[in-house]
Amino acid sequence: MNDAFSQLHPAASFAFFVAVITLTMLYMHPVLLIISLAAAAGYVCILKGARHFGKTLIYLVPFLIFMSVLNALFNHAGVTPLFYLSNGNAVTKEALTFGFYASVMLSAVILWFECFNVVMTSDKLLCLFGRLSPSVSLLLSMALRFVPKFGRKIRSIDAARAQIGQGSAQGGFIRRVKNSMKVLSVTLTWALESSLTAANSMKSRGYGAARRTSFSLYRFTVRDAVTMVLCAFAVGVTAACVVSGGIYARYYPSVIISGFGGIPALGMAAFALLCFLPQLFDAKEALVWRRLRSAI
């Protein structure tokens, strides 16, 4: 994966994901949802490969169908009955439509979060939180170190105790519970011991001796500023179109969805610009590379 967009400053990437996910969840307009879903799917393909996306589809498509059907079965609002269930309740066109778009929205959000997980690594999140509070960032970083370390130590102690017949998988049920408790107790003692060294090592390197700052691997550049302005602009235009009533979607009691006039088209274009921003970045970069190569 060589994705230009994920190399941006964490603040810019974070702003993008907040904007895109919020707008997707807020405005249930079919066109916006489909734009968002397509962009998210495309970005997942870039980040994790088409193959991975194919695997995601295996659970995403049944989920989409299941959600639409479920909503239609349990929600009977709407004015256009399609048929009646045996208990007399109507299955309506509106409920089916809403269920479908709601599941499109959820799928898009799931895919966006998948991208988020790849792009926003723990380092980037720490860098963001570090700006708010260096102590929170340190705390998170220490947790990220000590929790897996605990897990490894528990397994190692269990293996050691299994050698003297005291492992957590040896003996009857009561014996196993007792042995497991002992493994935990050793782990706790060990944790206290090793945290003494950690505390000394922190003190020795000046922890608490001065006001903390936070180290960051990332630099905020013009590119990041431009990205954030673009995001803000796209959000602004889309929101304006929605607020002015240009983009409008209603599902109950009857389905009314705004058409494609000048204003809605403007809003949709702005939203598409936002959603496809990562692809635009990559495309620009690919073009530059091609030009550079032909120059050689």
Partner: peptide
């Protein structure tokens, strides 16, 4: 070692 990443560990003293 206090933090989870090598670079963060190197930066621990200066940060403090």
């Amino acid at each position: 070692i206090v933090t989870d990443k090598v670079f963060h560990e190197l930066a621990f003293g200066p940060e403090s």
